[in-house]
Design a protein around this nucleic acid. Structure first.
Lengths: 112, 112
DNA sequence: TGCCGTACTACGACAGTCGTACTATGTCTG
DNA sequence: CAGACATAGTACGACTGTCGTAGTACGGCA
């Protein structure tokens, strides 16, 4: 099994998180499970990486947080949800474009 | 012009350097120029990044250094050349495989 | 009762990149 | 002839993102 080094993904964790949030607000634990399942467990984001990404991204204005119950009962435990902002959308789109270039560039140095 | 963030390339600088060295020994300034030209100036490695990569890679045993004159005259200024080692070759091949997986994984989070 | 899953927070370490600055030589140009 | 520019580096400290470790707290299930 080829392991993906974090140095490669570094710079795309935020993009992955934003991608998940395109489908509506979500929260830490759920996002980490989705990343795991989307990648067939080829990439599993570390908890600390994820939560520190939230802090950074909220500071950047790419996401907004709000708290809500786990169910709709109004008495349940609270969870911190995040939603993507307009700025986050812009950032996401820019990252997608950047990815195209990056792929091209790196490919020139790959020989099988 | 889409700029490639260093966080993405991080982890592939070494691979790029090794790729250049596949064609025989080379030295810092030459390698940086080659990376620039191969990528049509889409990626330009910083001097400090390059030279600190050399130190790291030699410590890792991925490259070996030796000094030689600029020309064959025997009186010229010395340059530090680097050549790829067997271990470096192995590392390079592993990185190429890793890249395939990385591409796949990141692609799942890209939407145009 | 104790463990697993959920849902986090805190803290400090580490690696790689980058800005800045400095040295030194050779060549080209006005 | 002076000054700019290309060549070929070294030194040092700052910064960012990731990660290891640890701890909290609640619910459900065996």
């Amino acid at each position: 099994m080829v392991e993906i080094s974090s140095d490669v993904i570094r710079g795309y964790n935020d993009t992955m998180i934003l991608f998940i949030l395109l489908n509506g607000p979500s929260y830490g634990y759920e996002i980490s499970k989705q990343i795991k399942s989307i990648t067939d467990e080829k990439y599993v984001i570390k908890e600390t990486t994820l939560y520190s990404a939230f802090t950074r991204m909220e500071k950047n204005g790419h996401i907004e947080s709000f708290t809500a119950d786990q169910d709709g009962s109004g008495n349940g435990k609270k969870r911190t949800y995040y939603r993507i902002t307009d700025l986050g959308m812009q950032y996401y789109r820019a990252k997608c474009e950047e990815w195209d270039i990056t792929q091209e560039v790196v490919a020139k140095f790959i020989r099988h």
